[in-house]
Each structure stands twice: as structure tokens, then as C-alpha cells.
Amino acid sequence: MVASPAFAEFLREQLAPLGRITMRRMFGKTGVFCDGVMFGMVTDNTFYVRVEDQNREIFKEAAASPPLNYAKRGATIDLAFWRVPERLFDEPDELAVWAQAALAAAHRVAAKRAGPSAPARKSRASPAKRRNSP
């Protein structure tokens, strides 16, 4: 399930110090973006953050819960998003530290995917809008 409107607004308020927080439905879940970079996901009003090798130690408390996953061909596929402990919603400064670490990880993952010779990203503007721009 996607994030409820109330939970989405709560996250926007809590994460606002990071930058422009937006959310978008994705695969039956809600992607959490900061300035266009996805660093978190929400399902059933549970917040998950991006984890990779460089920030795994920061999130060791989250390793106690299963990562965000989905079923594919009868197998469970774990994603690189770990559940944020509920206690952090009462600790906005610590939640910000976790979110900043997840955002940094998301930037590193995006950079690896893009690679050094990747072409520049195309604008998401509609074709009609692109035709009308100077």
C-alpha cells in the first residue's frame, strides 16, 4: 500500500531540512525523493531508506527488520531499502542523520548506474512542451 496522506505529510515535514521532498506512487508503494533523487520508500505507512555498503554500519539497527521486498516467480527479492525504526519519528535530529545517509547512498548508486560515459538525462517535459521551448 502507498503512504497515507497524513503519513506522507508527516514525512515531508520531518525531512524538509534535506531539500525539496516529493513523493510518487511506484509499484504499489510510495517513492520518497529529495530534489529528484529517490532515497526512500513507504509501504503501509512504514518508511524504508536506501542502504548500500558505505552506509550499512549507520543502519545496523534497521538490519533487525526484514528489508523491503517483493515476490517474483515464487521467490522473495530483497531490495536495498531498510526499515527505519519507529523510535526515530520521536527523534527528528537522528531521523535527519539517517535520511542524509540514505540520500548520500542514493546519489552514489545513481552515479554508479550512470557511469562515466553515460549520456546526459533527457528532460521529462512532454514532447509538446519541448517543441514549444526556445
Rank of each mutant, 00 (worst) to 15 (best):
A118K: 03
P134C: 03
L68S: 01
K72T: 07
L95E: 08
A101M: 05
Y70P: 04
R25L: 07
D93F: 00
V2W: 04
A111R: 14
R113Y: 12
M41Y: 06
R83V: 05
E61N: 07
L18A: 09
T46N: 12
G19C: 07
I21P: 11
T46G: 10
A102V: 00
F7S: 02
K29N: 12
K122V: 09
A63R: 10
R124T: 14
A125W: 00
R24D: 09
A80N: 14
F27N: 10
M26D: 13
D93L: 09
W82A: 08
V51P: 00
N69M: 12
R24I: 06
D90V: 05
E52R: 14
D90W: 03
K29Y: 07
K72C: 11
N45H: 08
D44R: 14
L88D: 05
F89W: 02
E9S: 13
K112F: 09
T46W: 02
L68G: 02
A118G: 15
A71W: 12
N69R: 15
V97M: 11
G36F: 05
N132W: 09
T76D: 05
E52F: 12
E94W: 00
A71I: 12
M23K: 02
A105Y: 06
R24S: 13
R130C: 08
L103D: 07
A114S: 10
A71H: 12
E57G: 08
S123I: 02
E91D: 15
A63F: 15
G28F: 07
G115T: 06
I77F: 13
A8K: 13
K60Q: 15
N132A: 15
V109G: 01
M1Y: 11
A6Y: 05
R50G: 03
R113T: 12
F33A: 03
R20A: 15
W82Q: 02
M41P: 05
A106H: 04
A102K: 02
F27I: 10
V37I: 15
